[in-house]
């Protein structure tokens, strides 16, 4: 960790080494996870109607698919990450994704789901499963740009928006759990945009290839999370601009929508 307490005084390399480090991750997550077993500080359950409970379970099943995709992908990406800093950062992301999956499964059990795996199998959105399959194909092919783009830009940006919105309307236990996840997602999507941004400056020809991937994949995730908001009973007029953060990120990277 650097000697200065003023982050804006750091040089670029020192900043990147700092924020990609396990030391930074450990001190950061202590701030918002310490004393919160399974992401919640022992809050009392609120009454949910059966319709609300079922909608929440279906939503959590889809969140589990997204988090499992990110867990499998980020762990695989360590093997072909371009430098040590990226490897170390991805190791912290693996830990985050594993924790997300664990707290989501725990929440499902609190909601009375006896066999979460069976529920996920039954309720998972087919588009999201298709997205996961394609993401893992990029990882199997050791395609760094496509993997970072699909996982850290498309998936993480959309999860960040949906979780943030859901945290604002959910029951207190689910809301606290989601807030902890959102704090992690900031790092994951920021890593993706910045890594890809630097890479596109050095290899502009990558742009067309990633644009094709964008066209193929982003609608799968946008449609899934739009359906998620429906399951949560959010009226069409009250739904957030789901793709707003994501479209802003890809616009900064030079992609047209």
């Amino acid at each position: 960790m650097p000697e200065t307490d003023d982050p804006h005084e750091l040089g670029e390399a020192e900043f990147r080494n700092t924020v990609h480090s396990f030391e930074f991750w450990f001190e950061a997550v202590q701030g918002y996870l310490h004393g919160r077993p399974y992401g919640s500080p022992g809050l009392r359950e609120s009454e949910l109607t059966e319709r609300q409970r079922q909608g929440l379970i279906t939503t959590l099943c889809n969140y589990c698919v997204g988090e499992t995709a990110a867990l499998d992908a980020s762990s695989g990406m360590i093997g072909f990450a371009p430098d040590r800093g990226a490897k170390i950062f991805l190791a912290t992301q693996v830990v985050d994704e594993g924790r997300h999956l664990e707290v989501l499964l725990h929440r499902m059990k609190q909601l009375g789901v006896a066999d979460p795996d069976a529920e996920i199998e039954q309720r998972a959105n087919r588009s999201l499963l298709k997205f996961k399959e394609r993401l893992l194909e990029f990882v199997d092919a050791r395609d760094w740009e496509a993997s970072v783009f699909a996982q850290n830009v498309i998936l993480e940006c959309l999860e960040y928006t949906v979780f943030r919105h859901h945290a604002g309307t959910a029951d207190p236990v689910t809301a606290e759990m989601l807030r902890g996840i959102v704090s992690d997602e900031r790092r994951h999507m920021g890593f993706g945009e910045n890594d890809l941004g630097r890479r596109l400056l050095m290899a502009p020809h990558t742009h067309d290839r990633l644009n094709q991937i964008k066209r193929e994949l982003d609608s799968l995730v946008i449609n899934t999370f739009a359906e998620t908001l429906g399951e949560l009973g959010v009226e069409r007029d009250d739904r957030p601009d789901l793709a707003g953060d994501y479209l802003a990120a890809v616009a900064r990277l030079g992609f047209r929508s």
């Binding site: 003023d6 982050p7 804006h8 750091l10 670029e12 900043f15 990147r16 700092t18 924020v19 990609h20 930074f24 950061a28 704090s183 900031r186 790092r187 999507m189 920021g190 890593f191 945009e193 910045n194």
Partner: peptide
């Protein structure tokens, strides 16, 4: 920042690792 920000200044967002 500890000082007034002006055009041309560079700052870091540590939560999302952006420059």
């Amino acid at each position: 920042s500890t000082k007034e920000l002006r055009a041309g200044d560079r700052v870091y967002c540590m939560p999302c690792m952006s420059r």
